[in-house]
Each structure stands twice: as structure tokens, then as C-alpha cells.
Design a protein around this nucleic acid. Structure first.
Lengths: 197, 197, 197, 197
DNA sequence: ACGTCCGGGACGGCCCGTTAGT
DNA sequence: ACTAACGGGCCGTCCCGGACGT
């Protein structure tokens, strides 16, 4: 009997470290603001390894990093959502969690997807598509929880969308002001808003 | 009595062209994604002029570009807001206008403030402050219009904030998907939401 | 009695493909201009195989490629020389053949030996020696045919040398101009030159 | 009263040093074998200066280096040619001079034009054209001297061509063998060859 | 014997934002 | 107000080694 989780070759671990480093740096400075050297240094990998694991270079690495970061954040979202007593409450908690993280990182850690979407990397279709997929997945997660809580499909869809937009925008505003209050106000606002049918 | 507008020296016009070019490029690719050469080329100004007008270099130019772009967008917002029959309708029109612009630019022209806030430039206090000021000004504009329409101050504040967050986030999502529908859905949603007292 | 030709293991065929690919690329771009990846891709061989067959790496591969290419070209030369009615005529035909090849390759396929001799690879004694040997062999071939046609040894030696120099130089000039005329003019000239005793 | 020659700005001198360094290195190792770092180090210029003087990068620098080297060598050729009592003697002296230089440089300094023509740089039309122009100029120089010595135009043209080819090829062969004898033999041979009308 | 995976780091050419000099 | 010069940083590719698998 083998353990399901930890059977990872050394190469896979290197690759993972590069992906994580990239994601972490993209959160802070976007794609254009992040140098390969920085990613490499942080992950302790030599330059040649990057091009072994990602022959497509920085762009391919970004796609992997964004996708994986999207899943990670999505999982957190999912558990916050499902542990709350109502969907609205769950949504508020997600936003509060994001606000906590922003504070903890001294207002540096926003959303990697947004950061990359808004910079030069968006010229790349592959990168843009990876971002769009992540956004879609997050929307689905929220819609599902809302539907579970009794919302009609159209109402759930609208609420999911406004939630996503609100927290992406809220993260941006909060970061500029170095103050999480706007983000937390958004959490409250969304908590209070009744479903419109 | 002096004419306020047209008395501009050649130097001022050069400066203005640089500022506009920078703003336009920041919208598309953020601060880190935009090279000085690109800005210079677009504005037709020689290299040395930049450091004459902006001794602080790229950073100082960015502050000017962001501030000015913020004013420009703010003015548009203001007239859209004041020409609508109700504040909610005005807000919806602002978002629709943003969606139109996004489409016209083939999903390249988002919000320069957001783009710069989310990339490496946010490490600069001067840049961050310029962004925060712009956001504040936009919030004030919306609050004022809402108050004028009979909203209480706290409700107006909340609605302004959620509006700002929604359109910044909506612009991001719409750009990633290359589809303005989410943004327009947000406009509708905000139009429909009753004031919560 | 064993077949001399077709008893080749898979490994030998791989090796051969690498050698041929290298030679072909050296003709076009010299040693420094040709990357290992390019050679590998063209020969369909995996990276690790190179160091199995050529522990000395690129340099050792080059020696093999140059030597083999030298033999191949030498054989062609030999048959052209021996099928002509006179040595001078044979020499002219060799040059014409080279000109044909240059045209067929769109002025890319010159002499691999010359290309490698003139670039950084010449710092390597092994490579230089391989080149020198090839040149010597070609000279011998021509001298032998000249002697056979009744030329005295010194005259044959001189004519072989000027022929080799003329076609190497002619190939270079023709390549730069993308015009085989100079090379063909050289063929004519050499055909016309009387033996000087 | 100002000296006509030495009025050179610092920028021009920097540029010149880069051009000379590039030419010197191309002689030894060709275009692909020569790194920009090497050129820069040798000329003592910083990296950025290169792209100021040669916005087109390495390729543009190569064109300049080749053109200038071509003129330099051409001038030497011209004076050797004109100071000899006969054209044939002049030609022999040119080749002898080349042989001297080859020896002096320990068989590293060949013809930069040939080296570049035979490596990957020949893919660039600009580079190839620069090489072709230099060859043409050299041919004209020799033709003119020959005509001056009483040769008919067609004979002069043929002799010029075979001379150019011979010394380019001879330089190659001599370099591979690290022996200037073949080159000197060529000088003798060409001295002895009678004009064919 | 033959080949793969992965690591390793130096170096490739290009372009960055900035400053001196005038 | 602008030309000229400055270095250091960008990302990508180079050739090569060792560990491992067949």
C-alpha cells in the first residue's frame, strides 16, 4: 500500500516551487513587474530548470502559476462558503478572509489573476484564457452555494458576479489606500443585501 | 482678463503629450509593462525632455498621468451622473460607458489606476497616493450625486463604494473574458438595487 | 562473405544521422552558428545520445562531421575528375558542380570545412586538424589526377593548390553576391589556363 | 587654425573603437563566434552605448565594421598595387602581405568578410550586401591597376576575380594548416601566370 | 549499450530607466 | 531642452553533467 500524496519526484517538487514562487510574486507585482531572476532565486532553482519544465518560458510558467493559484484560492473559498450558515454569510467571510490576507501582507498580496489581467501579459491569449477560467470557476463555486441556499439560478448568477467584481475591485481600492476598511464594508454590504428573487 | 485655456507654451504641450501617452499606455499594460521609449515615441518627444519636465523620472510622470487621467475620467463620470434622471440610472450609465470604451479598444483599455495599483509601481508611495486620491475623488462624486438624489449619507457612501468596486472588478473580469456582458450585467444589477435606506 | 554496408545497429544509425545533420548545418552557418539543439532536432536524436556517441561533446561531433563530409565531397570530386577527358576539364566540372549545389541551396550551402575554419572553432586543434586533413586529401586527389594526365609533380601541386583556393574563395564570393557567375567564371578560367610545364 | 583630422567628438571615438573591435574579432571568429560582451570589453565601451550608436544592434554594428574594414584593407591593397612595377607583381605583394599578417597573428587573423559571409550572419541581407560591396570594391581596385598596366578589360576582370578567390581560399587553407606556405605559393603562381590576352 | 530526466549556470543579444555635458 | 553615454537588468538559449532507467 502506498501513500497517495507524497510520491513526488524531485523534478516535480522543483517545478512546484517555481510555480508557487511565481504566483506569490505575481500577486504583488503582476507579470511585467516580476523578473524571472526573482522567481528563480525565490524557488532556489537554476535557470536551465525553468526551461526544462516550461519550454514556453515565462508565459507558460504564468499559465501554470495562475491556474494553480486559482485552484488554491478556489478551495479556500469553497470551504469558507460551505462552512457558513447562509450563502450571504459565506460570501462575506470570503471577503473578510481576503481582507485579512491583504493586511497580513502589508497590503501587497492582492489577487494574482487581476494583477496579470491588467498588465501587459493580457496580450497573450494563453494567459488571458487561464485568467478567464479561474474567474469562471470562482463564479461557479459561488453560484452553486447560492443555489444550494435556495436562490434561483438567475439571482445566484447575478449575486456571484457582483460578488466577484466587488471583491476584485475592493481589493484594488483597499490596496491603493492601504486600508482594508473599504473591503470589509463591502463584506457587510453584501451580507445585508437581500436576494432580489 | 486672461484666457484660461489656450495660452500654452511649446514646452507645456510637449509635457501634455507625454502625460497623455503615458496614461493611455498605462491603461493597456500598467506601469511595469510600459517602457519609457514607448511613451516617448508615442508622444513624439525627445528623450531628454522627459527629465526636464519630470526630474523624478518615470515615477513622477506616472503620478502626473494618473492624476490627470483620474480627473478626465471623473469629469466624464460627473456629466453622465448629472444628466441621468436618477443617481442609480446615472451609475448604470457610467458603467455602460466604461463597457463601451472597453469594447472600442478591443478589450485593451481598462482603468489605468487599477492597472498601476496592482503592479510593481504600488511600491511607490507617491504613485499609490495618486491612485488613492483618484479613487477618493470618484467616490465623492458618486456620493454627492446620490445625496442630491435624496440618499442618506451612509447609504450614499456604501452605494458609491460598491459601485466603484463593482466597476473596477467588472472591468477586470470583462477584460479577461474579452466580453463586456459581465460589466453590463453589473450595470443592470446596480440599477435595480433599491437604496437600503 | 559479409555485406559490408547494411549491418548497422540502431546506435550507429543514430550516430550517423547526428553527423550528417551537423555537417549540413555547418555548411550553412558554421560551428558557432549551429546549436546542438538544432542538430539534435534535425536528426531526431535525443539529447543524451549525443554524449554517448561523442563524449567530447560538440567538438568531437564536429571532428566526425567534418571528416565524413570531407570524404563525401572528396568522392564526388574523384568521380567528376576521373570521368572527364582531361584533368583541366575535370577541375572545371568540379567547380561547376559546386556552383550547381550553391544555387540549389539558395546560396546557403557552401563548404563546411571553410565555414568552420573561419569561425571560433578554429581555436580547437582537433577541429583545425580535421579541416587540414580534408584539404590535404582534396589536394592529393587533384594532384593524382593531374599527374595521371601527364603533368609534372610540381606543376600538378601548384595547379591543385590554386584550384582548391579558387573554389573555396569563389564559393565565398559567390555566396556573398548570391550569384554563381563568379564561380563559373573561375571554372572557365581554370579550364583555359595552360599547364606551365 | 584647426587640424582637419583630429576633430572628433568623444562619441565618434567611442563608436570607432566599437567598430574596430568588432572588425578585429570578426576576423578571428566570425560573427556568431563573437559576443557583444567581448566587443564591448575590448572597446571599453559600456553596453548602452552600443545601442545608442547602433540602434539596429549587432547586425548594424557588423555592417559598419565590415564596411570600414573593407575600406581599410582596400587602401592597403591600393598602395601595394600602385607601388609595384607591374600589376602582377602588385598582386603578389598583396598576397604576401596577407600572409605576413596571418603569421603575425599566429594564424588567427584572416579576412573578416569571408568569416562573416560563411557563418550564420549571411542570413541577413544587410550583412551579405555589405560583404558583397567590399568584394566588389576590391575587384575594381585590382581591375583598375591591371588595366593601367595594359591589360584588356576582360582579361583584367578575370585576373582580378581569380586573384580575389585565390587569396580568400588561400587564407582559409593556410589558416587550417597553420602554415602560410600555400598562400605564398599562390602569390608566386599568380606572379608567373601570363596574361591570356 | 543506449537513452531520459533534470539540474546547472554562464552567456546570448536587447532594452531599461537614468545622468552628464552643453 | 536635448544629444550622448551609461550600466545593469531583461528573458531566452547555450553546452554540459550527473542520476537513473532500460
Amino acid at each position: 500500500m502506498s501513500t497517495t500524496t507524497t510520491t513526488e519526484t524531485k523534478g516535480q517538487r522543483t517545478r512546484e516551487r517555481m510555480v508557487h514562487s511565481a504566483a506569490a510574486l505575481f500577486r504583488r507585482k503582476g507579470y511585467d513587474g516580476t523578473g524571472l531572476n526573482e522567481i528563480l532565486e525565490r524557488s532556489g532553482a537554476p535557470r536551465g530548470s525553468l526551461y526544462f519544465h516550461f519550454p514556453g518560458g515565462k508565459e507558460e510558467l504564468a499559465v501554470a502559476a495562475l491556474t494553480e493559484a486559482g485552484f488554491g484560492i478556489g478551495s479556500g473559498m469553497e470551504s469558507l462558503l460551505s462552512s457558513a450558515k447562509s450563502p450571504s454569510e459565506g460570501i462575506a467571510r470570503v471577503i473578510d478572509f481576503l481582507a485579512d490576507e491583504l493586511e497580513r501582507s502589508d497590503y501587497r498580496g492582492g489577487c494574482p489573476i487581476a494583477a496579470v489581467t491588467l498588465d501587459g501579459a493580457a496580450e497573450s491569449k494563453a494567459v488571458r484564457d487561464a485568467c478567464a477560467s479561474v474567474f469562471d470557476r470562482w463564479l461557479e463555486l459561488m453560484e452553486a452555494r447560492l443555489a444550494e441556499g435556495g436562490w434561483t439560478a438567475p439571482a445566484a448568477r447575478r449575486r456571484a458576479l457582483i460578488t466577484l467584481a466587488a471583491f476584485e475591485g475592493g481589493l484594488t481600492v483597499a490596496r491603493a489606500k492601504r486600508d482594508s476598511a473599504p473591503l470589509r464594508a463591502l463584506a457587510d454590504e453584501l451580507r445585508g443585501l437581500a436576494p432580489e428573487r
